[in-house]
Amino acid sequence: MKLRQKKTMTAYLFLIVPLIFFIFVRFFPTIYAFWLSFTDWNIISPKMNFVGFDNFRALFADSVFMKSLWNTFKYVLYGVPLVLVLSFAISLLLNNIRKGQAFYRLIYVMPYITPLVAVSWVWRWMYQRPPVGVINNLFSFVGIPTQRFLFSMDQALIAIVVTTVWVNLGYCIVIFLAGLQTIPKEYLEASKIDGANRWQVLTKITVPLLNPVILFLVVTQSILFLRIFTQVYNMTDQGSGGPLNSTKPLVLYIYQKAFLSFEMGSASSATVVLFGIILLITLLQFRLLKRRVQY
């Protein structure tokens, strides 16, 4: 055996371990969930009957499911642009300062490394009405009428988006900063010599060169918002996704179906739908944003 062959063999040998892991821990349950989505399994019954597409038909006839589906899109539509724009702006600022950059970076990353359940509960308390809610007390102090936030049909979802953006901001900033620092200084200097203003530098050089970073963040943040659960579960009354399902995302719907109503079959169907959506959106984003820029 040649040395080269031997090296390849060794590499494959090591790759087998994660492969086995993926097959049994990732792929097998996924495929099993696909199978479950065509059954009426109720989690405690040994019986598992094949029901065809009945679960899917029932799902799309269920107004709560449709509401959760729409809510999930709302989380993505509000959350992803907000977190990207904010983190990009902050990282541009941070990129300009030399002193204390590490300190600021640390501050912004703090929420990201804090357990999400703790974050959710702290925000839940901050959103309370008087006498305990910090935000409402502040409103009261400056004379703004108090808001119902998590108990309002119109504000609850946005309140949760704000918390989530606050959490994810640090991570996005770090990635953006890393991206910004890979942009060759020569390009920036050359453009300045050619008389480009700041806006032109930003739109013609920085953003195009950051394209792979933006793609990465759009994809990962979209998936994150599509799978939102912990915040909603911890910030709404009894984890219900209320008031009146106005904050309930798909994953919470799935959880409630599976582990509170024990309808594993229809929960699996909803999972398959979510899987399809994530797959579709991710492919779409790859297609739209995958443009290699080279100067």
Binding site: M153, D237, Q238, S240, G242, P243, L244, N245, Q256, L260, S261
Partner: peptide
């Protein structure tokens, strides 16, 4: 028959009147 769902309908009814 499904305590969570049966609790939810009452929570929702109260929320509806509040809204």
């Amino acid at each position: 028959v499904d305590e969570t769902a049966q609790r939810q309908v009452i929570m929702d009814a109260v929320d509806k009147v509040i809204n």
